[in-house]
Computed example of a mutant assay.
Amino acid sequence: SAISGFYTHLMESEIALGNPAGLAKKDCKRLVKDAQVKETKRLDQAQWDLLLITAEKMADEDSLFERNIFLLAAMKTMFLRISELAERDDWIPVMSHFWQDDKKNWWLKIYGKGKKIRDISVPDSFLPYLERYRLWRGLPALPGRQDKQPIVEKIRGAGGMSGRQLARLVHQVLDKTYETMRSRSGEKAAQIFKDVSPHWLRHTGASMEIERGRALKDVSEDLGHSSMATTDTVYVQTSAKKRAESGKSREV
């Protein structure tokens, strides 16, 4: 279990691609299957709002943090893994990967896990963040087909950023939010911002969409899951919460 937890952490940090301990558990006759209710690692609405507001305040004080706002909004709103915005040997995410169809719907082309390319729907609410970030970089408000600028580029040097560099941008805002929450509500309430990994933003966005009532199939395709069962298992907690609520009224 300890090894499995360690590999889960490595996967969330985009260091490992899989969990070999999980495969070993399937063949172990001595292990009992876990049927507990598992909570998705995510932020609630108030925690997410505070994180985004903190990033905006940081950018107001220093425009360099415009990258941080854009990154947070993109990862949460479009359920992105941090590796999907990072420059890799075989793929560089560029601005022309944002594209419009003939119905004026915006999409983002992503090279994801398992070397699969998918298109993610881009909501209207994200476009102001895209425009704000591009204008800060001295680019036209919206990208075109010939726009080969990296989606998140380095300040020093040319090209896009690595996964570790992007993770550092996320943690800059998490650390500041932790300090803000600790001063307001104490260490216990603030601790979650120390526990958060960048991968939580993907979980946060997807969970909120499920709660909003968006079709599971649509969320699953945007996430890049090969099966809706994966989305259902990881993100749908409604039935378990209803079971807990109905169980509270039991009498001894």
Rank of each mutant, 00 (worst) to 15 (best):
K113R: 05
K113T: 11
K113P: 05
K113S: 11
G114D: 11
G114L: 09
K115N: 15
K115P: 01
K116V: 13
K116M: 06
I117N: 06
R118S: 14
R118H: 08
D119A: 15
D119V: 02
D119N: 14
I120P: 00
I120L: 13
I120N: 02
I120D: 01
I120K: 01
S121V: 09
S121Q: 06
V122Q: 00
V122M: 08
V122G: 05
V122C: 11
P123Q: 07
D124Y: 09
D124K: 15
D124P: 01
D124W: 06
S125Q: 07
S125R: 13
F126V: 13
F126E: 00
L127S: 04
L127W: 05
P128H: 04
P128L: 08
P128V: 06
Y129R: 10
Y129P: 01
Y129H: 15
E131L: 01
R132F: 00
R132S: 14
Y133T: 02
Y133N: 03
Y133R: 05
Y133S: 04
L135N: 12
L135H: 07
L135R: 15
W136T: 08
W136Q: 13
W136A: 12
W136R: 13
W136Y: 15
W136G: 02
G138Q: 11
G138N: 12
G138Y: 10
G138T: 08
L139S: 05
L139E: 10
A141E: 15
A141G: 14
P143S: 06
P143Y: 03
P143K: 04
G144E: 14
G144I: 07
R145W: 10
Q146A: 12
Q146K: 11
Q146L: 12
Q146C: 04
Q146F: 10
Q146N: 15
D147Y: 04
D147T: 05
D147W: 04
D147N: 11
D147E: 13
K148M: 11
K148E: 14
